[in-house]
Amino acid sequence: MSQALPPTPPTQVIFYATCLVDLYFPDAGLAGIQLLERQGIQVIFPQNQTCCGQPAYSSGFNDQAREVVLAQLEALAGDCPIVLPSGSCAAMMKHHYPELFAGTPQAQAIQALADRVWELSDFLLRVCQIQLQDQGQPIKVAMHTSCSARREMGLAETGPQLLDQLSQVERVEQARASECCGFGGRFSLRHADISAAMVADKAQALKAAGAERFVTTDCGCMMNIAGYTEKQGLGLPGQHLLSFLWERLNAEGQAPEEVGGRS
């Protein structure tokens, strides 16, 4: 199921932020970009990128989604890999774009775009073969792999393997790790009570595992779980995996560049 590696590591990639990283968690985006640059890869950030189209698509509004996807097709023109700090948006581009455009004049171009897509942590681990030297203090961390990363992208092992490179990080495993956190986009609003029951269980499992922090590659899950732990005062903050990795490579608490996001 894992994506075939390119014959030679590319020298250039396009960074696709995804709207949640762009608007709410740009530090995760910057961290990803700097991790790539640290590997000697030139990162291109097309200013014309917006959103992958998933919100409309998963609500059944294919027409609206298609128009937005076509704008991404234009913004992401080229032939270098496209990397995303999100399993969910990567799966949208990789697996759902071709379905959405099957039988349309753009089908071929869309397939070519989909073939270039990589989830960034997978790209760092397998394509860049990144080596991480931990500079941080000891900490217990749990990885929450999103359902899209796990099942659509086949990346259940990716986050844990990256974390396990960090010598001072003890990775703890929560019960029912593969169970959904209950985000599901509009599901969390439309079926709020079911979603609440799911996120409560997820947060408690993470807490019970002894984690001081949880990390994930998907901002939807992060908003959901961290929003819950914050409101309930569980003392279990969440962080994007990329932000966490970058933080561990640099002196404690010293963010390398301007950081936005939660305040």
């Binding site: 990283v21 950030f45 609440a196 939660r262």
Partner: peptide, 22 residues
């Protein structure tokens, strides 16, 4: 925000978007 904030806090938009930062 409806059912979301019954059990969760709402995330705050960043001070600058990644578009702006980049």
């Amino acid at each position: 925000l409806g059912g979301w904030t019954r059990v969760r806090t709402l995330p705050k938009p960043a001070a600058r978007t990644l578009h702006q930062l980049m």
